[in-house]
């Protein structure tokens, strides 16, 4: 509803910030990516280590794995527990975090649990998950939740707790109800920090699922990495790692879009 009204023409006389027909931020982003790939290619050619392939051979390996279906299959395996774990962590994490920020009792119940989880070396605990949940998809999902949920919960809690008191008073002065106060003021006010927590949570969830695949059951993208490392096909191994980075970046971009579209339309124009 807001996004529709937020399109304002640029002020007249504003200096054009376009290069080669694209906005200059986009231009510099592409440029920096190209430089990184270029340096990677050169470093691979020197080579700095026999375990470090060039950019081009990594890309060739990646496309080969995409077209023969191995990569697609591996992602199918990895994304199921990752998607479920992240969705569960996001939904319950934000709900619990908001309730902790609004309610002392809820804070008292949940805070110790998540602080301990966040502080503990979860990677060391992952093998223990097997005792309770076996080696299937449930165990992997639990690993994702253990890494993602604390970050999401604690970020949300802090964001809500630190909601701008002046905006809350403003809402009260116009006779807003408590529910309106929460949904129209506190949550949008906390949205940037909540979304920062979600982005970190997704990244942590990725770590969780890969760790589970390396430590519990050799499947999915984690298995692709460890298998190719074990037979010294480093270009394939790096190709798998590369896809993870691309995938994370896409997820982060997606979350940013959701945040701007539904919660913080004012950031679009910055």
């Amino acid at each position: 509803m807001l996004a529709a009204t937020s399109v304002t023409p640029h002020a007249k006389g504003e200096k054009s910030d376009r290069l080669f027909g694209m906005s200059d931020t986009l231009f510099y982003r592409i440029l920096s990516v190209l430089i990184v790939f270029g340096v990677w290619e050169i470093a691979g050619m020197i080579p700095i280590s026999i375990a470090f392939p060039t950019f081009s051979s990594t890309m060739a390996a990646m496309f080969e794995m995409i077209f023969d279906g191995r990569l697609i299959y591996a992602y199918g395996e990895t994304l199921k527990p990752l998607g479920m774990g992240v969705a569960i962590s996001a939904f319950f994490g934000v709900t619990i975090g908001v309730s902790m920020g609004l309610n002392r009792l809820s804070q008292w119940v949940w805070e110790p649990i998540f602080v301990v989880l966040q502080a503990s070396p979860v990677a060391a605990l992952i093998p223990l998950i097997t005792y309770a949940y076996g080696i299937g998809i449930t165990a992997k999902t639990v690993a994702v939740i253990m890494l993602a949920a604390p970050i999401i919960v604690l970020n949300t809690y802090k964001a809500v707790r630190n909601a701008n008191p002046s905006l809350i008073q403003m809402c009260r002065s116009f006779q807003g109800t408590r529910l309106q106060e929460i949904w129209i003021v506190i949550v949008p006010n906390a949205a940037p920090v909540i979304f920062a927590g979600l982005r970190l949570g997704v990244a942590a969830g990725f770590i969780g699922v890969i760790l589970a695949e390396l430590l519990i059951t050799p499947t999915g993208i984690g298995d692709l990495i460890s298998y190719h490392r074990s037979i010294a096909e480093y270009d394939y191994m790096y190709a798998a790692v590369f896809t993870i980075i691309v995938f994370s970046a896409v997820m982060v971009g997606f979350l940013e879009t959701v945040e701007i579209k539904y919660f913080r339309p004012e950031k679009k124009k910055v």
Binding site: N164, S166, Q169, M170, F174, P188, P265, E266
Partner: peptide
Amino acid sequence: ERAFVFQDFALLPWAT
């Protein structure tokens, strides 16, 4: 019957 004008404006940053 009462409306308040805040010293720090108290405008919603995400609203037009």
